[in-house]
């Protein structure tokens, strides 16, 4: 609730003192950095990029309109199409596996296991590490000559092959292993908080009714945790679109183009290829994909509340 909503001088009654305009002035001044960030950087920057995505900017931004040319070139570029395909594979797998692993771990930890604190610490610590560190660790572990593959071969299983980072059809899964390692802990943490928020009496009621544990989770608990799942979905989704650092560190987009992702395409076009227009068009497409993820969520979360 607004404690001291300052009203504009315009709608002030005749008895209002003229100083009304300056009411709450300290708050307005204090909020200037926020206003600047919101309007200039977030709104201004986004609009600027969208506008310039319709220009033929090359080395420098120029307002030379080319209509949808940049987008046409973008969608005709093999590199972009591969990027999209890669991100789709990574995204779908990451979404499903993160939710499944995150929830499973949370549910297991919620069973009053011993050493819960230690386990939670182990599951979550990768989240404190950067994607660069994550990528480099897994690059090393997945090293075909000295890493996991050679260890298993050394144990006598000579035919064992696990070299995703050098196999163009498997490389996205190599990234996925690292991405899941870094990010599932967060989702587990959120899910665990959600599970802990569920009334103990629900479990008692389910036991009295003789409903088994697994069935209780599927029929009762998961439907109750809908908001937690939605939040997780949004977090995972917006993280996937941003996927960049991990790829840079772990595979640099290779082998060939096989682990290219949209964010990388943008960065190369803007800072490497002197092809700003392409970069703007590609980043605008990234924005569109985020909007596609966010709008249904926003309608679900906020649209419903206002009506109800």
């Amino acid at each position: 609730m607004a404690l001291s909503e300052a009203t504009d001088a315009g709608q002030a009654g005749p008895t209002k003192k003229p100083t009304r305009l300056f009411k709450n002035m300290a708050s307005k001044i204090a909020a200037l950095p926020m206003v600047f960030t919101a309007l200039v950087i977030f709104v201004g920057g986004t609009v600027w990029t969208i506008v310039y995505s319709f220009t033929g900017s090359g080395l420098l931004p120029r307002l030379k309109w080319v209509g949808l040319d940049q987008y046409e070139r973008l969608w005709n570029s093999r590199k972009w199409l591969v990027s999209i395909e890669n991100l789709a594979i990574y995204g779908i797998c990451s979404l499903i596996l993160t939710l499944v692993i995150g929830f499973t771990l949370a549910a297991l930890l919620d069973r009053k296991v011993r050493g819960e604190g230690a386990l939670r610490t182990i599951f979550l610590y990768p989240f404190a590490l950067s994607f660069i560190v994550t990528g480099l660790i897994w690059q090393w572990i997945l090293n075909p000559d000295l890493g996991l593959q050679s260890v298993v071969r050394g144990m006598g299983w000579e035919a064992f092959t696990f070299d995703p980072l050098n196999n163009s059809s498997l490389v996205m899964f190599g990234l996925l292993i690292a991405g899941l390692w870094q990010g599932t802990g967060l989702i587990m943490c959120i899910m665990l908080a959600g599970l802990r928020g569920i009334d103990e009496d629900i479990w008692k009621a389910a036991r009295v009714d003789g409903i088994g544990t697994v069935k209780t989770y599927i029929r009762v608990i998961i439907p109750m945790m809908r908001p937690v799942f939605v939040t997780s979905l949004v977090l995972i989704g917006s993280g996937i679109v941003k996927l960049y650092d991990l790829v840079v560190a772990q595979t640099s987009g290779g082998p060939g183009l096989s682990s290219q992702v949209p964010a990388m395409y943008v960065m190369t076009a803007m800072f490497g290829g002197q092809n700003l227009g392409q970069g703007f068009a590609a980043s605008t497409m990234m924005l569109v994909s985020v909007v596609i993820i966010l709008v249904p969520w926003a309608i679900l979360e906020f649209g419903g509340k206002k009506r109800g």
Binding site: I41, F42, G44, G45, T46, W48, T49, Y52, P61, V241, K242, Y244, A263, V266, M267, M270, L276, G279, F280, A282, S283, T284, M286, L287, V290
Partner: peptide, 8 residues
């Protein structure tokens, strides 16, 4: 996505 605001 940060890439959208990077160049501005």
């Amino acid at each position: 996505p940060y890439q959208v605001m990077l160049y501005p």
